[in-house]
Amino acid sequence: MSFNATRPNLLAAPGVAWLATFMVVPCLLVLSYAFFQRGVWGGIEYTFTLENFARVADPLYAKIFLNSARIALTTTAIAILIAYPAAYAISRAPRMRQPILLFFAVLPFWSNYLIRTYAWMVLLNREGLINNMLRSFGYTGEPLSLLYTEAAVITGLVYNYLPFVILAIYSTLSRLNPELMEASRDLGAGPVRTFFRVTLPLSLPGVAAGGVFVFVLSIGNFVTPALLGGGRFQMVGNLVYDQFLTANDWPFGAALGAALIVTMIVLLFVQARATARASGESREAQA
């Protein structure tokens, strides 16, 4: 392993080739499909058109887009509200204990997504645990229909993506220079003021990064709306699924997928710019 110029490229080559062949090329291919027409029998007709993108803006689909954006936004907000105190508490725990706490906060995220969603089907079912508990507390009315509601979908999404947001926020909090908080305290600010004027603003990049991913993953989800929403709540992910597996309109599905990726890139770009500007300002403030 000497440090000559070609060795690193040679080492990286197989992985790069794999990613280029099975990620970059397929993504470009599906993107190109978005510019073609759907064939009469569901295939692709290679005639250039922008119609598929126009259809994304069609009121029927725009409504689904906006509705799933609203669900995703609610999910993101709730996830951040729960994750922030958790990440903050972990960052304040003794240094020795932090990795373990973080590991157990993130562990569910690595395990099976379907099973974690299914666990909520068990809890929210009409014969499920929550209705049973209500009954044992003396509730005698009709069992509550908790499953197949928008709230169930949001709960499932928050539950699944929470660990990710905790991780993102913790990683910025743990990197904050403790001297900044000390300086604020020395200058006479109380703990509350120090938190809102120093800690919180400095940790916003982590909040934003976690938020962008939860938003994009939620809006593109099709499993949770199908399982916890009973198919009554369509997300963009469900639309893409339908175009590819049932409606057989791949060009339109491709356009929807492209819209999803563009949304993510734009949000990440905005987040990166805002972070860069914020860190520039704080550097100026320090100077």
Partner: peptide, 23 residues
């Protein structure tokens, strides 16, 4: 290279899934 190695971890599953199906 950084972007290429990072992308698979953040690209929404559904996008990679339909891209590979198409491919």
């Amino acid at each position: 290279l950084e972007a290429l190695a990072f992308a698979p971890m953040v690209i929404p599953d559904i996008v990679l899934a339909v891209a590979l199906l198409t491919f």
